[in-house]
Design a protein around this nucleic acid. Sequence first.
DNA 1: CCCGTTCAGTGATATTGTCACCCAAGGGAA
DNA 2: TTCCCTTGGGTGACAATATCACTGAACGGG
Lengths: 221, 221
Amino acid sequence: MGNTAWIDRFQGLSTLPAAVKDQLVAESAVMKVPAGKAVFGPGAVPDNLLFLLKGRVRVQQTSESGRDIVLYRVEAGESCVLTTACLLAHEPYSAEGITETEVTAVAIPRGAFDRLMAASKEFREFVLTAYARRITDLFRVIDDVAFGRIDVRLAGRLLSLASDGDDLATTHSQLATELGTAREVISRVLNDFQKRGFVAQSRGKITLLDRASLVRLAESA
Amino acid sequence: MGNTAWIDRFQGLSTLPAAVKDQLVAESAVMKVPAGKAVFGPGAVPDNLLFLLKGRVRVQQTSESGRDIVLYRVEAGESCVLTTACLLAHEPYSAEGITETEVTAVAIPRGAFDRLMAASKEFREFVLTAYARRITDLFRVIDDVAFGRIDVRLAGRLLSLASDGDDLATTHSQLATELGTAREVISRVLNDFQKRGFVAQSRGKITLLDRASLVRLAESA
DNA sequence: CCCGTTCAGTGATATTGTCACCCAAGGGAA
DNA sequence: TTCCCTTGGGTGACAATATCACTGAACGGG
């Protein structure tokens, strides 16, 4: 069973009544998943709601043509609520979730989820708030893809992917998936960034040299 | 107060226990909105959950640059659940809902919504299912915008907008908003469609001449 | 060291978006 | 009616992205 204090690490859950917390802890199970595994997706429907204690999950969609785009990320302290809805609704869920790091998560089963929804106003608010955040994420993706310039978008991604340190180990293909574009496009824009002195590149690695310029570019939305 | 039977017109609500139905009816108010009005949006946050009895609401987003894209439509028998979440979460909600026809809706206030969520498993399922549908809608939009060809997308829109009859009264600009593209692009594609005999055009009006070809094009995703 | 795989570069071409205009159709006011 | 004035739509030139068809370089395992 393990940790009984994990609940308080979720913003919005700490105010749950003690009885509800106990119930939640009793019915949930802590699990570990290695990096690079699909935690859900077409053909791998979980029937648990996952709370991420540690690690990060990337949620992306694959189009019919085989190309991918990253929709959002679930970080530690967040919950992967969208799966819940699609799960309950038995909708064909075209997105998949992939662990980017080793992930520690608490799984609460469907029944417990429903009971919590019934019992606790705070839990309902937690869930709906989590939804709202995801949905605004999706709105942002739509806006970016429909109206954004790729150089601006790429600058933004580089900055957020390299939040710790100036190096990031990633390939042009992976960055193309981030933005839902083609590898060649990324290559060209990165070469442009390099010429302008914003970044340095080597195989599978990008180093940010001039964050300020990238920030300026990223904010010229 | 009016109709007490509206609940049964919502798939998923008809199985609600009688007591819950009564409560719902008692706390809700039927309202009418003329066509072309914004029912929610930045600066116009409702604190009701709306159930559409009649009419249609178009939900669209306006980018910083002023361009629009249609996200989805809420039809009679559906509920505009996404607003709820954003409403509860006090998230800045960048989308707006506009009535496309005269709309008759039932508004249930926030407090009643929350009580229903607590009281009824069926209601919870209704809400979460509605969410799931919207979210898959949004996923589809992202996929289309990121990877779809505009001629294909336009063919699809023409077909779905002209579901009753072969004429549709719309402008090139409106169609551009539908797909999140520019008016000139729509003009060119429509002229191409016209040359190929798929449609006929006059000012503010498009007539579908060859649905079969449009369907074929729309399905060559 | 060879070989297969992954990563990245590039030119040519197609598609889509942007800009700067144009003109025509319709509607209201005098 | 005539004059505007607004709205809808056409178009050419050009910019930004996407696609295709390659190329070779870098790395890893046998």
